[in-house]
Amino acid sequence: MESIPVEHGLILAAILFSIGLIGVLTRRNIVFVLMSLEIMLNAGGLAFIVAAARWGHAEGQIMFLMILTLAAAEVAVGLGLIIQMFRRYKTVDINVLSEMKG
């Protein structure tokens, strides 16, 4: 019988998450930052699906659906913010949003 070790699926999720994190920390273009956030969220969803497969349950998929909804809402709001920011600052450089510094 073919089988996949659970840790392989989880490690894949961890790798995708880490790549997303690098993207968030490195990119200055706010659109890329938002895309990297999507990668991280998706990695979280993948971890849930792997866990669901390990137990053979459907609950993991439901959690994935929740993450999907969350991602959709977050992208809608985030893109709205990006549009507003571009209108005001005429740039997508995230560093211009540093007026709150102490």
Partner: peptide
Amino acid sequence: LLGQLVNVMRQIDYDIVPAQV
């Protein structure tokens, strides 16, 4: 971070036999 996560996950020892849900 990845190293830590992998280090934690390595300890799980279970094989998934994919079954359709």
